Simulated assay, not measured.
Amino acid sequence: MDGLEKSLSLPRDPVRARAVRLRRTGTLSGLKWRENVLAYAFLGPSLLLFAIFFFYPMLKTVYLSLHTTDPTGRVAGYVGWDNFSYLFRNPQFLQGLKVTALFALLTVPTGIALALVLAALTNGKTRGIKLFQFAFSLPVVLSVGSASVIWMFLYHPTLGTLNYFLSLLHIAPVSWLVDPKWALVSVSIMTVWMNLGFQYIVLSSGLRGIPDEIYESARIDGAGPLRLFGRILLPLLSPTLFFLAVVSVIGSFQSFGQINILTRGGPMNSTNVLVYSIYQEAFVNFRFGSGSAQALVLFAIIFILTLVQFAWLEKKVHYQ
C-alpha cells in the first residue's frame, strides 16, 4: 500500500489535501486575473477611441441640449427642456420629420426590392453573368460625393442625359432638383442607385449560401420560378433581408451628403431631412443647443424604429 500511495502521490492527511486545493485555486485565480488583464490591455485602445469619439460627444450633446448658446456658439445659460419643447412647436422641424420619413419610405423598400430582383436574376452560372454582377456591384465603390456629382450632371435641366432621353420620347423636360414635387424623388432615385451595390452584394451572398440540393428538390417536385422564389428563396433569405432592412432604415435617417450637394434642403424645404436640419442649426446658425436637441430626437427615433423592427420583423425571420 505504501508503494501504491507513493506512486499515486496521494495526500496522507486532510491538511495536506486542503493545501493542495488552495494552491490549485490560487493558481487558477492568478491565471484568470492575468487573462483579464491581457484582455483589457487589448481592448484598451478601442475603449479609448470609443470614449473620445463616441461617449464624450454623446455626453456633450446631452449637455448642450439642456443649454442655450450665444451667436459664437458658446454656452450662455441653462434652459432645461425648452429646446425640446421648442422643437415640437416648430413647424419646420415637424416638416423635417415628415420629409425624413417619406425619404425612408421611398428609398428603403425600393432599394431592397430592386437589389433582390437583380440578385435573383444573376444567381446562376450562365456564361457572361459575371459582367452583370460586376456592373450591379459597381456603385459600392463610389463615395457619396462622387455619386452626387455624377447625378447632378444627369439631372441638369438642359445638359442632363435624363432630359435628353425624355426629349427623344417627346416628353417635356423635368426640373429634377428645382421643382419641389420632384426634388425629393430625384434625391431618392440617386440614393437607391448609390446603395444598390451594397444591397446587391449582400443578397447575392445570401443566395449563394442556399444549398443547390434545395433548388434541385424543388424543381423535381415541379416548382416553377415564381413558386421557387416566393416559397423557398424568400424564407431562406429572410435573415439577410432583415439585416438589410435594419441597416437601410438607419442609413436613410442619417443621409446627409447627397442632400447637401444636390439640393441643400431645398427647394422650399422639400428635401430638408433631419440630419441636414441639424447641420444647419448647429454649424450654420451656431445654435448648438437646438441642434443637439434635434440630434437626440433623431437618435431616439432610430432607436425606437430598430426596436420595433427587432420585435416585429424578426418574428418573420426563418433561421436555418
Rank of each mutant, 00 (worst) to 15 (best):
L313F: 15
D13H: 04
Y215W: 04
T158D: 08
S270N: 00
G209K: 03
L298T: 00
S205W: 05
V246M: 12
F53M: 02
L28H: 10
A245Y: 00
L97N: 03
T122V: 15
L305H: 02
L207D: 04
I278L: 04
N90I: 00
L106Y: 14
G222D: 05
I171R: 00
A120W: 13
S292Y: 08
L274E: 10
D82N: 11
N195D: 07
M1A: 04
H170P: 04
G251Q: 03
L118C: 03
A223G: 05
G265E: 09
S137G: 09
P267W: 05
V20T: 08
L10E: 08
F93C: 07
G266A: 01
L241S: 06
L262P: 07
P173F: 02
K32T: 10
S255T: 08
L10S: 05
W151P: 08
L237D: 06
Y56P: 01
F84C: 10
V15G: 10
L97F: 13
V149E: 12
S167C: 09
R89T: 14
Y319M: 06
G124S: 11
L8Y: 04
K60N: 10
L203P: 00
D70R: 02
K316Q: 10
I171M: 05
A41Q: 03
T61L: 05
A51V: 09
